[in-house]
Every structure is written in C-alpha cells, then in structure tokens.
Design a protein around this nucleic acid. Structure first.
Lengths: 200, 200, 200, 200
DNA sequence: TATGAATGAGTCTTCATTCAT
DNA sequence: TATGAATGAAGACTCATTCAT
C-alpha cells in the first residue's frame, strides 16, 4: 500500500473511532487495530494521537468553510434566500454524509484542552462574523430589521448546530436536507410568530 | 467539619476545577489538593471521580429544570412573552452566576462517554419537548405560525446554548441579562426580517 | 515502611543495578523488581529514571569532595605527604566499600548525555584544579620541580582513576588501602626512575 | 559506489556520530541519514548496530596497538626515552587527528554492556602488561627503581588517558604533541618532586 | 544491490483506586 | 472519619530489525 493510501486509511478509521467514542476513549491501540496496522506504523504517519486528531479537525474546518459564503448582493447574483439556503444545505449535506466528522466537531473536539478550545472558538468566531456580515449587508439593503446582529448571528449558528446535533442523535439515514435547511432558514428569518403577530 | 459540609466543599472545588480544565484534565490529585483533604478522604465521600462528576451534573440539570416552565395560558397567567422571558432570564442568570457549571454543561460533559452522552441527550430532549409543547399551545392559540415545532424548538435551544457559550467565552462580568434574554426571545419569535418582509 | 526508608531502599537497589549493568541496561522494571515495589511507587519517590540516577551521582560527588582537601602548609599542619596520603586513602576507601558507586562514577555516568558529560567534566575539573593548586603551593615551597602543574594534576587524577578502575575490575575484596595509596603517591611524586637517574 | 567504499563511508559517518553523541543517542536513522543511504542498505553492510560499533572499536584498538612497542634494549636500538616518547607521541597523534575515535574509546565504549566491558578491560590489560614489561626490563637494567611495576603501569596508562580526555574536552585544534608527550613522560619517570627531594 | 514500508517488543509514565494504620 | 503510601492496569511512544519489491 502506498504511503498516501495508508495515511488516508488510518485517518478514516481514526475518524470513525473518534466519532463513535470520542478522543479520550479512543486509544492508539484501538486505531491500529481498526486499521489493521502495527503500532510503529502509526507513528510512521502521524507524530502522535493529538496530531492525527488535529489533522482530522483541520480538514473538517476547511470542508465547512468551503461551503459557507458571504451573501453576494450584486444584481447578477442569485436571490439572497437561495444563497443562504445553499450555505445551510451545504453544511448539512457535508455532515449528513459523514456523521463521524460531525461527531468530532460537535462532541469530540469539545473540552479537549486549551489549544483546541481556542481553535474551536476561533472557528466559531469566524462563522459568526460571516453571518453577522451578511446580516449587516441586509440591514443596509433594508431587509433586516434593527437588532443586535452579532447576537442574531450567534443564534443562527446555535440553531444550526443544534439541528445538526439532532441529526447526529437521531442517526436517521434519509433526511430531506433541502427541506430541513429551508425550515431552519425560515425560523431564523421570519421567527415563529404568525405574520404580523406579536407576543404581547 | 461535619460530613455534609465536607461533601459540599469537595463538590465546590471540583466544580471549579472541572469547569476550568475539563473532566479529563482534572485529576483526583487536583481536587484533593484544592479541597485540602487527603486522598483516602475523597473516597469516603464519593464512590469515584465519575460519580462526583455525575452528582455535579445532576445537580446542574435540576437547577436548570427549576427555571423552565411550560407556558401557562390560563387567563390569570402573566403574558406569554413575560413567561418565556422569565424562562430564558432564569437560565441565563443561573449560569451568569456560576460559570463553572455552565462550562461543565457545555463542554465538560460533552464527549465523555456513552452514559453521559445519553444523559445529556435525554436532558436536551426534555428541554426541546417542553419548548415544543409551548409552541404547540401557541399554535392552538393562533399566535404561532404553521411550522415544524420540533425543529423550531431545537433552533430555540441551540440559539440559547450558543449565546451562553458566548457568555462563557467572553468572560464578561456584567451582562444585562434581562436585555439579553429579551433580544434572544425576539429573534426567535419575530426572526430577523423587517416586519412584513420576506427573503424573496 | 516510612518514606525516607523507602527512598533509601530504592536508591540502594538502583545503585547496585546501575553499577552492575550501567544506566541504559537498567530499566525501571529492573529497579522496582529488585526493590520489590510496584511501578507506581517508584514515581512516588522519583520524578523519573534520570532524576534517580542524578541523585545517586550527586551524592557520590559530595562524598568524594568530602575526602579531598587542599594541602595545608601552615606550620602546625601534618606533613604534606600525610595530607596527600589522607586524600588518596579517603577516596580509595570510599569506593572500596562501595563498588557500585565507583562503577557509576567510572562507567555509568560516562557517555550518558550532554548534561551528564558537563556535570562529570565539571567535577573532574574541580578535582584537577584542587590538585594543581596544591602543586603550585609546592612550587612556592620549593618542593615541586618546575613543570606544567595542570598537566601533572591531570596525570595524578588519571593515575588514581585507573587504579580505582583496576580495583573495580579485579573485584578483590581485601586490598591494603593505605599501602596502595602510598605507592600511588610515590609514583606520582618520585616517578619510577632510580634516585638521581634519568632516561637519557 | 563499490561495496568497500560504501562500507567505509558508513563507518566514517557512524564514527562521527558515535563520537559526538555516544552509542545510545545515535540511532540507525541518524547514521543512514548522514550516510545518505536507505534503511535496508545499512543491513546489507552490517549485521546490526552493535556489529558496526564493534568493528569501529576493533579498528581503533588495532590502530592504537600499532603505535605501541615494548622497549627494545638491544645496543643498536634508539634510546629508551626516544622509544617511550615515540609510543606516547604516536597515541596522542592518532587521536589528535581523529577525535571521534578518541571519544568512542574514552566514552562511547564505556558502560555499554558486559561484552564491551570485557573487550575494553582486555585491551587495557594488554596495554598495562606491555608497560609493565617495559618497566621490568628497566628494573633489570637498573634504571627503574624498586616499585610495584603493575601499579606503575596502571598509573602511566591512567595519566595518558586523562591527558587524552582533556584533549577531547578542550577541543583544542593545535597542540604541540611532541612537547605534550615529553612532559607526560617526564612526570611519569621523574615524578613531580625537585631532584633529590622528598615529601617528608 | 538498493529501497523504505512495516513490524512489535520494550520502555517510560500516569492516575484512579485501595487499604492498613 | 482521616490519612497517604502503595498499587497496577493502561496508555503513549521509540527504534532496531525485517522483508517484499
């Protein structure tokens, strides 16, 4: 087996294990057993367990970022809704295909150590800022109401994370990703009140 | 020091440490050192490290549940908005006073092991169901629009969690809890669009 | 067993093993087996294998230094010869009683790593300087001939080391330490030529 | 590159590394990297790491022995002093040109394992016996005083070793080898006392 | 000859838990 | 109740050596 295949193979087995059991419960022994390799072989490809996990995590971050774009408000661009929907759909689709990675993001990388806490915080901060930026653009266009856009961005991020979490917990194989994304977007944009209604 | 005081003292020190460093990074040595007790003494009060953490976690769950009520729609009850606001304010206030507990909930208990995953999932399921129930009541009253109320409930939970996460990360001492709760509630209920607006 | 006794016990067993097999060939497993303690117990008393070895080594250095004095040339002092004889006798006696320590000094601590190389070099430098100082005093008194006293000091040190090495290799139980020291001193002071003779 | 050249090349790189870092700190990886060969190639030329080191060591021993001769007392022979001086000069010169080999002899091969301990002891025993033999001849000729010639031989060997050690530590590039050898020889033959003097 | 991926025995080290005092 | 010395299972990591290509 050539080196890059072997690397890939180890990464995949490790992802599955980290996803299923978490970082601490997954030992090097687990990984090499799953990958069917010897102990020393592992260290031929990765400096240590943490480096492997970090690589997995970094890859994950890149994949997510690829699917998120700031809303383009030039005349030729697709509708704002379509763009937002694409963002959300992309992220859900990514994880729908790879539950292990989702688990690593939402559970595996949480509470690991200071280094990872910062990495994770930095990632979420970026996402939040991207959403906030889009909301601010919407404000200028007059389609977003006056509100704390940073808070709204946090809320949007949190809502999506929780829906993904639910996806993970339910383990449902076939979700209508497009419909799910659409509903999440609607709740965030229109809220849950009847049109023109208020809670007071 | 009498037994229950000693128990309490250990719990408090452990909470601080778990909150600051996480479950795995917190050793029994850390705890007994902080609490100023001998190693053996620890095991007189707690079966083991996990049991201690579990007790902390269970206590936390009880505290949160105490602050969340299904909306009361009887004529004599306060306004729906006021009740929801109380729920949200209560939760934020709880954690605002005790960051360690918040950290344990959002990070410490995540990805620990299967048992805790289920416990956590069960807790969030209950919260989700309570919110969903309130939303369904709202539907009957005609103030909530037609939507997937479970999904909306997940979104609401997620939004609140993320705002709390931010609170934890920012470490800000003085937040206007009431105002924060109010804005979170508004985003959830009215969305972010201008009144009567749409994304299309 | 109380802590300091236990420490001592581990040190003694370790010294024997290091002396017999050298640093690298002596594993923690060897040590704990010899001392009849559990693996964890070892780390209760020593940070790691190297720290244990270093402690042994440092103790050794202190013991040797205790037995070496710069020659006292005040009128009331014993004869120069008697003082030098005391120095040499003391060192030989120290190691004669404790071959393990001798082995550690002459073989165990050699070629370990940069840190130990410097420690060892520093120790020998001190000894050399002490001897050199005594020789310079002798020059002033007119009993030492004109020569490179540093080189002579090195030669004296080397001669003594080699004799000790031989003691180690021979494993002879009963040496006449006083006589041995006396002869070593004679060779160094008078050389090997017949009185008044020369090699030319 | 033909086989014997390759062998030579590996030996040289290994000697440098062993000399600089010692046996244990020098890994096969170090050696093949320095020599620019593949891992497997190493084992085509040497049975294992130890065999390589042994070859280096044996070569070293041969080189040293070449430079040491028993004193020739036949009438036609050069003066005794000249012969001894040649012996000492030769050894110092050998190492002066090749510090790595010197380091291997004085530090690298010390405390390795039982096998090497015996090899080293055997070598030093031979040197000692050669010196002792020369001293005994000197006794018969009446130029060496009555003394324990074995002890004197050990002292001579030790003195030379220590001077070499100092050479290694000092790292001095340009030593006057001849002068150094001469002084070492003088100290050994005449001692350090003024002519006709004594310590008492 | 040469390569370098693969091996796995061996070592150090940690830490939750026990138990005699 | 309280202590803290002792335990040992479990985990990470290294590196000399092998072998299929």
């Amino acid at each position: 087996m050539n080196p890059s295949e072997r690397r890939e193979q180890i990464l995949e087995h490790a992802a599955t294990l980290f996803g299923r059991q978490g970082y601490h419960a997954t030992s090097i022994s687990n990984i090499i057993q799953a990958a069917g390799i010897a102990r020393g072989t592992f260290y031929l490809y990765f400096e240590n367990k943490r480096a492997l996990f970090e690589e997995l995590f970094d890859y994950l971050i890149v994949q997510i970022k690829k699917r998120i774009r700031v809303v383009d408000i030039s005349p030729a661009a697709p509708s704002v809704r379509a763009q937002l929907l694409d963002n959300i759909t992309g992220v859900i689709a990514l994880f729908s295909e790879n539950r292990a990675l989702l688990s690593i993001l939402l559970e595996g990388a949480v509470g690991l150590d200071k280094g990872f806490a910062e990495k994770l915080a930095g990632f979420y901060r970026q996402i939040t800022q991207t959403i906030e930026l889009s909301l601010n653009l919407g404000r200028e266009m007059g389609i977003i109401r006056e509100c704390d856009t940073r808070l709204a961005a946090l809320a949007a991020l949190g809502a999506l994370k929780e829906v993904l979490h639910d996806l993970l917990r339910s383990g449902d194989g076939d979700v209508n990703i497009r419909s799910l994304a659409s509903q999440v977007l609607d709740i965030f944009s229109r809220g849950v009140l009847v049109d023109g209604g208020s809670l007071q």
